[in-house]
């Protein structure tokens, strides 16, 4: 298996603002690769460069062995894009949205019709086949956008925040479908703000912040390496508690109303803290990707 998408020293500038700052990554064939990061980290810009909607400023970027600067049309022919914004065609029905889109790929009308029906079945939209897209729910629109991205039977599928704003049922359906596509050998690129989603779906991922890749790896490895296996959360921490934890050399973080201690094994820590500070409300939980994310990109709100 080779790399399907390779970026080296990839830079994107908007006038003076550097949106993507010399990043490098290699995405393997058939894997689900995640791009995480706060708003404005450069995820969507990177996606846009991959599907040739946004020209690269400098560096190298190749998709399926082709340079984005030289063969954008051939690249776009082989990838499917499900954008963050709803850009379905409000003038058409659900089914017509798919067949009109297929025409942009020069797909034969008969083939397109059949494929559209199959994909509506796949995304559980058959019932809405002849309904105008204006009259379907937000979750259905997202599913239709994914179905649309599959009309050209892409080798690479780009999903930009595919489940934002969806109810749990719709999210699970989309997750199932993504796994099914991966089994068929489709390479999936995913951006998301949901860490559980990334943890469940992505083989590997990068966390981006301010245009740079902060860390790359498998979700489980990242959690183990950056956080440990467990987290002790303590309510209403005091300065003495924090000083004590620091003196012990434990990896920790203080938020407004919580003290977090990252560790491999937590029972001792809880015991020691209880002994030293009396009744402290503590929770021991498994470390998650969200801990990794917040530790690396900071807890401050990003505007």
């Amino acid at each position: 298996m080779g790399s399907v998408i390779v970026a080296k020293d990839l830079v994107k500038k908007f006038d003076e603002f550097v949106a993507v700052d010399r990043i490098a990554f290699a995405i393997e064939e058939g894997e689900c690769f995640g791009f995480l990061g706060p708003n404005g980290a450069g995820k969507s810009t990177t996606m846009k460069m991959i599907h040739c909607a946004s020209p690269i400023t400098s560096g190298q970027l190749s998709v399926l062995g082709m340079d984005v600067k030289e063969r954008p049309r051939d690249i776009k022919n082989l990838i499917g894009v499900a954008p963050q914004d709803n850009n379905l065609d409000p003038d058409f029905t659900v089914h017509k949205n798919l067949t009109v889109y297929a025409r942009y790929f020069n797909i034969d009308a008969k083939v397109a019709k059949k494929r559209a029906d199959d994909l509506l079945e796949f995304m559980q939209l058959t019932e809405k086949r002849d309904v105008n897209v204006e009259n379907i729910s937000g979750g259905m629109k997202r599913r239709l956008i994914i179905a649309r991205a599959l009309m050209n039977e892409p080798k690479v599928l780009i999903l930009d925040e595919p489940t934002t704003g969806l109810d749990p049922q719709a999210r699970h359906l989309i997750w199932e479908r993504i796994r099914e596509l991966r089994r068929k050998g489709v390479t999936v690129l995913l951006t998301t703000h949901y860490m559980d989603e990334a943890e469940k779906l992505c083989e590997r991922l990068v966390i981006m912040d301010k245009g740079k890749i902060v860390i790359e790896g498998r979700p489980a490895d990242l959690i183990r390496d950056v956080i440990g296996s467990e987290v002790v959360e303590m309510d209403e921490p005091t300065d003495e508690m924090e000083a004590f934890v620091r003196s012990k050399g434990w990896d920790h973080e203080r938020t407004i109303d919580r003290l977090l201690i990252y560790a491999a094994c937590c029972d001792d820590i809880v015991l020691i803290m209880k002994e030293r500070f009396g009744l402290v409300t503590t929770t021991i939980r498994k470390a998650t990707l969200e801990d990794v994310f917040l530790k690396l990109t900071g807890r401050k709100l990003i505007e």
């Binding site: 954008p72 894009v81 914004d85 850009n87 065609d89 409000p90 942009y104 020069n106």
Partner: peptide, 14 residues
């Protein structure tokens, strides 16, 4: 408003 052009240029259309 409809972002139809954006949808189109994600396909082989220039």
């Amino acid at each position: 408003y409809q972002k139809t052009f954006d949808a189109m240029i994600a396909t082989p259309l220039s």
